[in-house]
Deep mutational scan, measured.
Amino acid sequence: MPSETPQAEVGPTGCPHRSGPHSAKGSLEKGSPEDKEAKEPLWIRPDAPSRCTWQLGRPASESPHHHTAPAKSPKILPDILKKIGDTPMVRINKIGKKFGLKCELLAKCEFFNAGGSVKDRISLRMIEDAERDGTLKPGDTIIEPTSGNTGIGLALAAAVRGYRCIIVMPEKMSSEKVDVLRALGAEIVRTPTNARFDSPESHVGVAWRLKNEIPNSHILDQYRNASNPLAHYDTTADEILQQCDGKLDMLVASVGTGGTITGIARKLKEKCPGCRIIGVDPEGSILAEPEELNQTEQTTYEVEGIGYDFIPTVLDRTVVDKWFKSNDEEAFTFARMLIAQEGLLCGGSAGSTVAVAVKAAQELQEGQRCVVILPDSVRNYMTKFLSDRWMLQKGFLKEEDLTEKKPWWWHLRVQELGLSAPLTVLPTITCGHTIEILREKGFDQAPVVDEAGVILGMVTLGNMLSSLLAGKVQPSDQVGKVIYKQFKQIRLTDTLGRLSHILEMDHFALVV
């Protein structure tokens, strides 16, 4: 994948999101292997301009796509893939009243899908469409860049269908997702969380590099694949309309690839034109409109599966009536509230959605109805927002919020430890010299600072030695090549209790 991002070429006709291997024109390309080798690009942008032909009021008969309808489940399912879809609609009884809503608040519980998330729908649909058009064949390999849930859905379907599955996901995604993927037989590649989507090191860039190296491999490409919004247009939206008897006044959905909100909203605009569509985008993402909503100094966020630093091709923002931004604290607070007060075992993005819903639905009156999409299960986040310690460490809970008995030293300040200034190293000294210094002084790690004293990161003896043994660096290389740029900081005025929580999850903390 090139470091400079080429513009994806656009073909003359058809839909841009065809499933299957992508040609340089962004659509299915038939021909000899030699032709494909000559024409197939190194990668295709996940934010390529959409060429979708959908228009409100256009006859369904003019759609270029294969459409399906929700099917009634048999008493005995032939395999677990038949437990994807037909998820329950559940009334939220307490939270709406707590925040003064007059309307009825309903939750579409997508964590009841077989793999635990709304992404099971698009995973199965992308595979079925690729099999139907002859792209996927027995023994082929599926590769997908994902925040985890699409990966789980694909790995689940691949396990049943017999495909090899490789999932490329950023490091910030939970260990629970990784464990589930491994249990399903998927191979996992992790990428830096802070890598831009168009960087060769991003999950998108690495996935395309693997595709170019592995024979008979395919990126189904949830960011561009029409099967993504079509899955929701054909099934999720129809289920909502049936469950609500066609009567709903507002739908609120958090947005990642945009397939969920695009597919549902398009069908609702056709069948229930008075329904307002509300999009939820986390602070630090750029999906919301108008652009002024996205202006923030924050560039990272903890909530998973929603928000991006690019506009995915499948996201149709014209069908969203209003956007709201959400933050991590309210997302996790509301997710825990949904679990504790409503018994809905949902993930953090569901918290984002409901946090926005109780604001947006203030305009609705008694007798009206708001539906929220709860995308995934708490299963993926047992060591994250479900953990009091994690919430404390991230600053989303305060010590006084917890009532468990603490040891005698818990409320003492870090400054009472009488710490001395640490050994520091410059980023320009060599790895070999740094190892000598650390061994001589008896230290395992040291902060790396520039000549102005600005902290650049941390270097550890173990990481340097393993990097040297693996051949990633040489003793003569500058130590700046092996620094940890993500590390926890703590102030002298913070409590030892807070430091204790940090050290339970990290090997060190830097006192500043």
Results as ranks from 00 to 15, higher is better:
39 K>F: 06
203 H>D: 03
21 P>M: 13
221 D>R: 00
249 D>E: 06
187 E>C: 10
43 W>H: 10
37 E>P: 13
258 G>E: 03
52 C>Q: 00
137 K>C: 04
196 R>W: 08
55 Q>K: 13
8 A>E: 11
78 P>G: 12
25 K>C: 15
256 G>W: 00
200 P>V: 08
150 T>Q: 02
37 E>L: 13
210 L>P: 01
62 E>N: 14
254 S>A: 06
117 S>E: 05
221 D>M: 04
122 I>S: 03
261 I>F: 02
167 I>H: 08
157 A>T: 13
197 F>H: 06
94 K>S: 15
228 N>V: 00
213 E>Y: 03
213 E>K: 13
188 I>C: 02
80 I>A: 04
192 P>T: 08
209 R>E: 10
94 K>P: 03
227 S>K: 10
42 L>Y: 10
198 D>A: 08
110 E>V: 00
209 R>W: 08
269 K>S: 03
17 H>T: 09
240 I>D: 01
114 A>T: 11
184 L>D: 01
158 A>F: 00
120 D>K: 07
234 D>L: 09
203 H>Q: 09
73 S>P: 12
29 E>H: 12
266 R>N: 05
86 D>N: 13
219 I>R: 07
34 E>C: 03
218 H>D: 04
92 I>D: 00
231 A>N: 06
73 S>H: 10
89 M>T: 08
227 S>A: 11
171 E>W: 01
164 R>C: 13
74 P>D: 10
233 Y>A: 00
71 A>G: 14
203 H>C: 04
218 H>K: 05
143 I>T: 03
214 I>Y: 05
129 D>L: 05
133 D>A: 04
102 K>M: 09
207 A>C: 05
69 A>N: 10
145 P>N: 02
166 I>Q: 04
52 C>V: 05
48 A>M: 10
72 K>C: 09
82 K>Y: 11
226 A>F: 03
261 I>T: 15
216 N>D: 11
274 G>R: 12
137 K>L: 15
16 P>S: 05
254 S>E: 03
115 G>M: 08
85 G>K: 06
227 S>I: 07
99 F>M: 13
58 R>W: 15
31 G>D: 15
145 P>D: 04
178 V>E: 05
142 I>R: 01
180 V>E: 05
98 K>I: 14
16 P>Y: 12
213 E>I: 08
48 A>L: 04
119 K>G: 02
183 A>N: 04
78 P>Y: 01
233 Y>M: 00
28 L>W: 06
182 R>P: 02
264 I>R: 04
206 V>T: 05
172 K>H: 02
44 I>R: 15
176 E>H: 00
93 N>M: 02
69 A>L: 05
260 T>S: 09
131 E>H: 02
264 I>L: 15
3 S>P: 04
215 P>V: 05
141 T>W: 12
182 R>T: 06
177 K>Q: 03
8 A>I: 10
262 T>N: 07
163 Y>N: 01
167 I>S: 08
190 R>G: 04
173 M>Q: 06
145 P>G: 10
243 Q>N: 09
217 S>E: 06
56 L>K: 13
53 T>D: 09
136 L>C: 13
14 G>K: 09
33 P>H: 10
179 D>L: 04
68 T>R: 12
217 S>D: 02
70 P>W: 11
36 K>Y: 10
247 K>F: 03
169 M>C: 02
245 D>R: 02
15 C>L: 11
275 C>H: 01
66 H>Q: 12
174 S>I: 00
101 L>E: 00
54 W>E: 06
211 K>E: 11
103 C>P: 01
276 R>E: 04
204 V>Y: 10
197 F>S: 06
193 T>P: 11
68 T>G: 13
125 R>W: 09
177 K>I: 00
106 L>K: 09
178 V>I: 07
128 E>R: 03
125 R>A: 12
162 G>L: 05
175 S>V: 11
185 G>M: 00
83 K>L: 08
263 G>N: 01
55 Q>A: 07
269 K>N: 07
111 F>D: 01
134 G>A: 10
133 D>P: 10
62 E>K: 14
21 P>F: 03
